[in-house]
Each structure stands twice: as C-alpha cells, then as structure tokens.
C-alpha cells in the first residue's frame, strides 16, 4: 500500500510517499496512523494533533474509520487551502 503525505505533513515526515506493509490488525486509516506513529518519532510528531489532518483513500475523501483492506493509496494531509 502506498501512503502519501502533503504540505507540512510531508515536511515533518520527510518523504512525500512511501510503500508500507502493515500487519492485518491494521484495518482502518486510524489504525494505520497509530501504527506509523509507533514506528518512529517523526511520525508521532507529525500525527500529534489528528484533528488537523484530513484523509483520502484511493483519491476520494474519507475518514479515519475508513477501511484500508485492499486499497492502493492512502493520503494524509492538512485541510486544503487552494483557490
């Protein structure tokens, strides 16, 4: 599964995207974020305030309780500021 980070999340984590292979117990986007945060301090720091983070699953807006089994792409980013 590919995980993408944008804006200040990308800067804090240090990469724009990465391939990850979480265990089967990681079933939702929320589980994935918790699993990443437990891996390294830079993830924990980036995910400190989860209310400031938005989610997309396979390029569609989603929530932290969205299932990730079988998905290709999960994106994590701050609220959008285009226009």
């Amino acid at each position: 599964m590919k995980v993408l980070y944008f804006a200040w999340l990308r800067e804090r984590i240090g990469v724009g995207s990465e391939d990850v292979d979480p265990p089967e117990t990681v079933a939702t986007v929320g589980d994935l974020v918790a699993w990443l945060a437990a891996r390294e301090a830079r993830y924990a720091a980036a995910f400190e305030d989860i209310s400031a983070i938005k989610v997309a699953v396979d390029q569609e807006q989603a929530d932290f309780d969205a299932p990730i089994t079988g998905v290709r792409e999960v994106a994590l980013f701050p609220p959008v500021t285009g226009g």
């Binding site: 944008f6 804006a7 997309a56 807006q61 994106a75 980013f77 701050p78 959008v80 500021t81 285009g82 226009g83």
Partner: peptide, 10 residues
Amino acid sequence: LKTRAPFWKK
C-alpha cells in the same frame, strides 16, 4: 474548490 480540492498554499 476551496474546501474540497487538494491544494495547499505556502
């Protein structure tokens, strides 16, 4: 667009 399209300004 301002609330749904994934753009970020720096």
